[in-house]
Measured scan of single mutants.
Amino acid sequence: MAAGGDHGSPDSYRSPLASRYASPEMCFVFSDRYKFRTWRQLWLWLAEAEQTLGLPITDEQIQEMKSNLENIDFKMAAEEEKRLRHDVMAHVHTFGHCCPKAAGIIHLGATSCYVGDNTDLIILRNALDLLLPKLARVISRLADFAKERASLPTLGFTHFQPAQLTTVGKRCCLWIQDLCMDLQNLKRVRDDLRFRGVKGTTGTQASFLQLFEGDDHKVEQLDKMVTEKAGFKRAFIITGQTYTRKVDIEVLSVLASLGASVHKICTDIRLLANLKEMEEPFEKQQIGSSAMPYKRNPMRSERCCSLARHLMTLVMDPLQTASVQWFERTLDDSANRRICLAEAFLTADTILNTLQNISEGLVVYPKVIERRIRQELPFMATENIIMAMVKAGGSRQDCHEKIRVLSQQAASVVKQEGGDNDLIERIQVDAYFSPIHSQLDHLLDPSSFTGRASQQVQRFLEEEVYPLLKPYESVMKVKAELCL
């Protein structure tokens, strides 16, 4: 049975990233139509530049190519590739079939990587351009969430054990800070992308030097003109047959890092959902379990974690691919890159769409948070109580021993009897502590235990987050809708 299948058929496997999760716009960027249309555009740009620099290419040939950029006979191309065992030459023939007058000058002087690699770089750039505003929107939604809850005390956790208090907004800023680093890295790697350009079979530009009869300047002009037509500021000066596969490492490393950030955020949300302090959106008709109707599973956060793990592992592909590119190139890269580049971007696209949807509907339960604080705060307040007693004339050592005994009794009630923490009640009825009984409410005010959390939130948002989001103001209103 021949390899390949009808990918629109229910009898043929289709990647869930495309069929179930990723956005239509990201799927289109990695589609065959987008790819092969870009090949034709690159052939047109090459012909236009070659004509401008004096090669015998007519206006009629150029116009014929322009008129057929979208006229792609995919069936013919597939048949040609089956016959020739070469995808680029299959599309040269297919393009030439609908451009008979231009057929002889299509791909003039070029090698397969002229269309293959340059198209990949265009796709990487455009895919990054799709991700950047999506990530900015996630940051914006979380920034709104953090600002609104900047002063809401909550129990902090280290080692997932109760620690000092923080605020809900401050905790959210930990998430935002990681995503801001990801946004900066995505922008950097996007701006650092260079075009492969017009380089020939081993990167020496020998074929173009021959076409222009040894004119170095025209060869350099050709490279520059096509690079500018493709919208790049610069091209690699040095290439082998391909652009260095280190570029793929750079791009997928940034995406993998984004995956790590999203995994951490969504894990926190899942843990908070278990504590009943916070939940992701839950639709009115949504079913959490087929057997347990009360369940409210954090399905979206779980999906993000599941896909983020996949995204983090994909960076190993370009690392290994770059390491086995012998001399000017081997074909070890080809099949692998067809999979890992598309999957990385479709996965990143999915987790950003999902995280935006989550961040637009996060639900906080202040009463649950308050109750958990009441359970733990008495123990945390013991040092403040000791200091207040010393100020009232008591002995630190005597007070410490009193607190120690009462704390152990209260802990026994919590752990052995399943009761509430009654340390404060014990202190309130103990005559030894009568000098500070009137101060206990103040000493137990949760806001006095959150330090500068709310001020940190305000400063972080104003100095770091809002300036970073400013270039994306025009796209901030787009909502994230999930079908599944």
Rank of each mutant, 00 (worst) to 15 (best):
G451W: 05
C113E: 14
L355E: 01
Y294L: 03
I436Y: 09
Y21W: 15
L179F: 08
R452V: 13
A381T: 15
M278Q: 05
L319A: 00
L314D: 02
N421W: 01
A308N: 03
N71P: 10
E213K: 13
Q205A: 14
R37A: 14
L130P: 03
I287Q: 06
K264Y: 05
T242Y: 02
R141D: 06
R396L: 07
H97F: 12
D32R: 06
W45P: 06
P24L: 14
E425A: 12
I287A: 10
V478A: 13
K218T: 12
A273R: 02
F157G: 04
E376H: 14
F208M: 12
P100C: 07
I122M: 09
Y294F: 04
Y294W: 06
R37I: 14
R149M: 14
D129K: 15
I373G: 03
Q397C: 06
L406I: 12
H400G: 04
L341Y: 11
L377D: 02
Q241R: 03
L319H: 00
E462K: 11
L183H: 15
E250F: 07
Y294C: 01
L132V: 11
E70W: 05
C304T: 08
L377G: 03
A22N: 09
A273V: 09
S334W: 02
D333M: 01
Q210G: 12
L222E: 00
L130Y: 10
V262Q: 04
K218A: 09
A260W: 00
L314A: 08
S306R: 01
V247G: 14
K391H: 07
Y34L: 06
A342M: 15
V363E: 01
Q221M: 15
I385D: 06
N336S: 09
R234W: 08
I176M: 12
K367S: 11
N118L: 02
A2R: 12
S12L: 14
A480C: 15
E50T: 12
I106Y: 04
E50C: 07
V92M: 05
G156P: 00
K66L: 05
R190G: 09
A3N: 14
E277L: 01
Y365W: 12
T354N: 11
K35H: 08
C173I: 02
Q63P: 03
L482H: 13
R309P: 00
A206P: 09
T58Q: 08
N71E: 05
R245L: 01
K477V: 15
C266R: 02
A143Q: 12
D430R: 06
S434Q: 13
G5M: 11
P100S: 15
L484S: 14
E80T: 12
P100Q: 06
D333I: 00
D144I: 12
L307T: 14
L135K: 13
F460L: 13
K233L: 06
K391S: 11
L352C: 09
R338V: 00
R329M: 00
I373H: 08
D6K: 10
M316F: 07
I386A: 06
R190V: 10
Q286W: 01
L443S: 01
G394W: 08
M181Q: 11
K224E: 11
C99T: 02
S323E: 04
Q428E: 09
M26T: 09
F433R: 03
A110V: 03
R372F: 06
I339G: 07
R14L: 13
F449H: 14
L108H: 07
A3C: 14
V219A: 05
K82L: 13
K218R: 11
I369Y: 04
F157W: 09
L331Y: 13
L311W: 00
G197V: 01
I176A: 09
K391N: 08
V315Q: 05
V315H: 02
H7G: 09
Q285I: 13
Q416S: 14
F449N: 05
A146Q: 00
L179N: 05
L108Y: 09
T244C: 09
I249P: 05
V262E: 07
K276A: 06
K170R: 13
S31T: 07
A206F: 02
S454E: 15
Q286H: 02
D441P: 15
T350E: 09
D6V: 10
K233F: 11
S454R: 13
E463T: 12
M387G: 14
A3R: 11
L209Q: 11
F208H: 07
T330S: 12
L121G: 09
R426V: 04
P298T: 08
T239S: 10
Q51S: 11
A308P: 02
G200M: 01
L275K: 13
D117C: 12
S301F: 07
Q210L: 11
R125I: 09
I385A: 00
R37M: 14
R396T: 01
V251E: 07
R338C: 01
D248I: 09
E463G: 10
S289E: 03
D398Q: 15
E462C: 14
C305P: 02
N71A: 06
E280S: 01
N336I: 12
D398C: 05
R426T: 05
P16E: 05
D445E: 13
Y243N: 10
V478F: 11
V465A: 11
M76K: 05
E80D: 09
E283W: 01
F157R: 09
S15P: 13
E228Q: 03
V405W: 09
G104L: 09
N297R: 03
G259N: 04
T382A: 06
R426G: 08
I385S: 08
Q409M: 10
G96W: 01
L461R: 04
S474D: 15
A78L: 14
E425Y: 13
S438T: 15
E383N: 01
K233N: 14
V405M: 04
Q221H: 14
W326C: 02
L135I: 13
K101E: 14
S140N: 15
D248H: 05
P56H: 11
T382L: 05
S31A: 12
F74C: 13
T52K: 07
L46K: 02
G214A: 14
I339C: 07
S438A: 15
A348W: 00
S474L: 14
S407V: 03
E302Y: 06
K367T: 01
F157P: 00
S140V: 14
A206H: 06
D420F: 05
Q409I: 02
Y466W: 15
R303S: 04
R37G: 05
M312Q: 10
D59G: 05
T38V: 08
S474Y: 15
I427R: 01
S454H: 09
L406A: 07
R245C: 02
I386Q: 12
Q164K: 00
L186C: 13
I123K: 07
D349W: 02
I122F: 09
Y432T: 06
C173E: 04
S438V: 14
L362G: 04
D191P: 05
Q51L: 06
H97E: 02
L84N: 13
Q184V: 08
R14M: 14
I427D: 03
I351A: 06
A480R: 06
N357S: 12
E417K: 13
K276I: 03
E228M: 13
N297W: 04
L484P: 10
S261W: 03
E283C: 13
K224V: 09
A49I: 08
R404T: 06
T313A: 13
E383G: 02
I106K: 05
G259I: 01
G156Y: 01
E148N: 09
A230D: 05
L132W: 13
Q439D: 15
S19M: 02
V363Q: 09
I237N: 10
A453Q: 03
A256C: 03
Q63D: 00
L155R: 02
L131N: 14
I237C: 14
R141I: 02
